[in-house]
């Protein structure tokens, strides 16, 4: 490798080719548009409401993705469906309106892709507020997202209904901050209930392939 120019060109070429692979994927996925369902007369996925979009920023800024994924893997690959994380696998179309897709890399806690669409019952706003305020098991408390206010007269409507050791001192109430409210709005918006055409055949094909291996 005495020839510096050739060496340099080789480096450049290998780098470019590796990025070309990324661009190829982008070519494939970047063109995805919402899917219009004639039966329902509307397109999917929905855009996130503004408050949920702001909540996604809170989710990102606090680093929730360091413990939670938002991607349900295909059937036959892990127990994602069996754990009730989603009735179908996640597909690229699910994320097209997300400015900061939070796919995540660690599952210290459960997957949250479809956490608001879970059956038979998903956590509601109150559950989520309490969970964020007090934590649960290895899920850290995020009490800093809440304020303790002195109650004069009526208890604020937003105040958490806390009991036991989590309850505030008498005469005080715990109310969610703006951040906590947007975050919960975001969490309540997480669902992949709608079934796209591409999430169906993949389900079958993968299941068949899996079956063939066994």
């Amino acid at each position: 490798m005495k020839n510096g120019t050739l060496f340099f060109l080789g480096l450049f070429a290998s780098f470019t080719v590796s990025f070309a692979v990324v661009l190829l994927a982008n070519h494939q996925l970047g063109a995805l548009t919402p899917y219009f369902d004639d039966g329902e007369g509307k397109a999917f996925p929905d855009r996130m409401p503004g408050v949920a979009a702001r909540g996604q920023l809170v989710y990102r800024d606090l680093g929730c993705a360091s413990c939670h994924t938002q991607q349900v893997r295909r059937p036959g690959f892990g127990a994602d469906q069996a754990r009730g994380w989603g009735e179908r696998q996640s597909v690229a179309r699910d994320y097209i309106f997300q400015p900061f897709a939070q796919l995540g890399t660690m599952r210290i806690g459960p997957d949250l892709t479809n956490s608001a669409g879970r059956k038979p019952s998903a956590l509601d706003a109150e559950d989520l507020m309490n969970l964020l305020y007090a934590g649960q098991g290895a899920m850290p408390a995020h009490a800093f997202l809440f304020e303790q206010v002195k109650v004069t007269g009526e208890v604020p409507a937003k105040a958490l209904k806390l009991t036991g050791s989590a309850a505030p001192a008498a005469g005080y109430a715990v109310v969610p901050s703006e951040q906590a409210q947007t975050l919960v709005a975001y969490l309540l918006n997480l669902n992949t209930v709608y079934d796209y055409p591409e999430s169906r055949p993949v389900v079958q094909a993968a299941a068949q392939a899996e079956g063939a291996h066994k």
């Binding site: 990324v22 994927a25 982008n26 996925l29 970047g30 995805l32 690229a92 699910d94 994320y95 097209i96 309106f97 997300q98 400015p99 900061f100 897709a101 796919l103």
Partner: peptide, 10 residues
């Protein structure tokens, strides 16, 4: 910025 899943790929 690329969209959605492409962010994770990149």
């Amino acid at each position: 910025p690329m969209r959605g899943v492409m962010q994770a790929v990149t």
